[in-house]
Design a protein around this nucleic acid. Structure first.
Lengths: 205, 205
DNA sequence: ATAAATATACCAACCAGACGGTTTGTAAAT
DNA sequence: ATTTACAAACCGTCTGGTTGGTATATTTAT
């Protein structure tokens, strides 16, 4: 339906095409892990969903693990963009409670977060995948922690803050996992508010 | 190497043999999910590990899902035995903190707990498996909750206690997941103690 | 500037191996 | 006599990955 009858619009540059195809494959991978779970995920499924041929897929990602690692990196980039967007709306020193709310709202409560859990659990059984996923995770953790220590308003010792941060992450991880198989969708809301209440209690004293 | 040269020891009863084979298959299933992850789990692997033939396996469990659901039930029975053993050592009214310590020590910190998480996550993509796993889970939750409300010493409203219990379970679930892919094995100890400290704080006031 | 050479993006057909499950058969328990 | 536990060989399907080939973009040589 291109109305222009001039020359057939030159194909985009190699770089553009490549980047677009890769991103389509990443999105398809993450979507499918969410929808059908990691166990059922196949490379053929991903290619079909992404709208690319099997040939194009293997051209960009010779092995399945290459694609999985790429999708995981892509996910951490989504998280990083969310962090930047959030911090742009916040003051220099972000109140802890606001930070926790952001973590739940923008990261952990998203269905795609489960994809990262499935990916990490699955990586346990595959040495190659495990090492590569762990390396990506190390990078992400460093970025996350740096942001945490420089932007969040904390009034406790470094040691306490570290344990508290990891506890918070465990709470959110547990809630995310729970959300995928509990029957009462509202249950997590009450749990989250209880966590915030306990946080206020703990920090005030 | 059986020293007895009397009659070749009559084979055990059908019921005994059946029960033993089934249990071997359940254990092999759970062990293998822990070791190689759910994705790599195959029925052939399970049969080999359990030391039974493929024929015996399909005789007892016609489909893979039958076996998976059986293994999940078996796991909830392990949990139930752990609960009974714990309560036997406790007074009528169990202090909340002792109960939380038991949950972590006897249930969530065990590697096999991860098998239940993987099973539940995997069940998302398989309608048949999901429904059957959810049914088992419903039974288990009812048992767990009944025990909780009758045995644990709580001094808060039913509503608060419910949210607090779910929060505790999310913490432990998150810690268990974390344990499978974080680099610092001692991290969880500090997190757990922080949780107990916050609990004491929260409940005292 | 342009033609030739090369690298890149993409495609369709194919394949060896593994998977869950079926079939056929035997021996012991009931 | 019949049911139950177990065994081994087999099979259709699907999987990740390979191969051989085309078209466009990019670089190099003239």
């Amino acid at each position: 339906m291109t109305p222009t009858k001039t020359k057939p619009a030159p194909r985009r540059s190699q770089e553009q095409r490549s980047a677009e195809t890769r991103e389509r494959l990443f999105r398809a991978t993450l979507d499918l892990i969410c929808e059908v779970g990691f166990e059922r995920l196949t490379t053929a499924m991903i290619a079909r969903r992404a709208g690319v041929s099997k040939g194009a897929q293997t051209h960009h990602f010779p092995t399945r693990n290459d694609l999985l690692v790429g999708a995981f990196i892509y996910l951490t980039e989504i998280w990083e963009r969310a962090r930047i967007a959030f911090e742009a709306t916040q003051p220099e020193r972000i109140p802890l409670e606001d930070y926790i709310r952001y973590l739940w709202r923008d990261i952990f409560s998203k269905p795609v977060y489960l994809a990262s859990i499935e990916l990490m659990l699955a990586a346990r059984g595959d040495v190659d995948l495990r090492e590569r996923i762990m390396a990506v995770l190390d990078d992400w953790i460093e970025i996350r922690d740096t942001a945490f220590w420089t932007s969040i308003d904390l009034n406790m010792s470094k040691q306490d803050a570290s344990a508290f941060m990891h506890l918070t992450l465990s709470v959110l991880r547990g809630m995310a996992t729970n959300a995928s198989f509990n029957r009462d969708a509202t249950e997590n809301d009450a749990v989250f508010e209880t966590w915030l209440a306990m946080t206020r209690h703990y920090l005030k004293v």
